[in-house]
Amino acid sequence: MRVRVRTILGLVEVLGGREQDVEVAAGTTVAGLLTHLGERCAARDPSGVFRAEGGGIQPHIRVLVNGRQPAFLLGPETELHDGDDVLLLPPAAGG
């Protein structure tokens, strides 16, 4: 299945673009996607946004699935579906 991964600011360089479609196996969870992205982006991730061991992402990066934080879904084990919109947000401020 295919999910849309979007990001902003400093993470654009790490992910290799502002948005992209990513192919993952059916049943992939949020945690699984982050592991997949970590492996895929390792060469562009010298500061370790994605954790090399055990998957996941730095705690100050916000992950939203279809606009919602996984905490309000099923946490890292939230299962993704074809066409889902996954947003990775580094800290921002101001406004």
Binding site: R6, T7, I8, L9, G10, H60, L64, G67, L87, L89, P90, P91, A92, A93, G94, G95
Partner: peptide
């Protein structure tokens, strides 16, 4: 975020954030 990003980019970084949201 304060010194690492906000001090450099200022409030316009919220254009990117709200655009994505």
């Amino acid at each position: 975020v304060l010194y690492s990003a906000f001090a450099k980019l200022g409030t316009p970084m919220v254009v990117d954030l709200t655009g994505a949201l």
